[in-house]
Amino acid sequence: MVNWSKYSSPQAFYPLAGRLIPWFAVVAVVLMGVGLYMGFFVAPTDFQQGEAYRIIFVHVPAAWMSMFLYVVMAVWAGIGMGLNARLSFMMAQAIAPTGAMFTFLALLTGAMWGKPTWGAWWVWDARLTSELILLFQYAGVMLLRTSIDDMRRADRSSAVFALVGVVNVPIIYFSVQWWNTLHQGASVSMSTGSKMAATMLTAMLLMTVAFWLYSIAVILARVRCIMVERESLPVWNEKPAVIQEAVEAR
């Protein structure tokens, strides 16, 4: 059994995160390379949508990540509120920009897919609209944090907003879908459903895992920056070991 509580203090977490980041980063890059290659070159051309559909290998994993990260952010925020744990608030703070980035990526690739498929850069499709509002909510969390000078209040206020947002996201999704059926809008769905070929599925999964690992690496790196900023943790914490190694190498 690993004693997790040992790593829950920023002082212990900092070096641990430092050791893990390169591994996550390297595997993420490798998987992303393989996934993109499979998606863009190996997977068969879709007989309805032609080559344009290939953007979904980026779009769908990015959209998944954007929603998943919002939930993870809210969970950390909730833990922070419940246990009054500084590290949890730092995690929530570190997740927000990455989540917002994936939301933006999902919107961008959605527009790129929409142009050849629907003939318009933007369509008020239920999923795209929900993504747009999710982006607003990420922006809200980050703006609220930066507007408040007192760190403790910034943590807790943005946590409350993140938790309110997590209730709102499914309601928004449902309401936008409802609104769409009322207005007889876009009928083409993004998901290609069960017709998906095995290579397509593999590429999609590879990209998803790659985005996961990328997120972990970036978030850990950002948490380390936040720690240095907030706790005035000495950045040279790890130096003695490095120097030790250097001395031994001689």
Partner: peptide, 10 residues
């Protein structure tokens, strides 16, 4: 406004 308007959508 930025916080509340997205919540008003539904």
């Amino acid at each position: 406004a930025l916080l509340v308007l997205p919540l008003y959508v539904p």
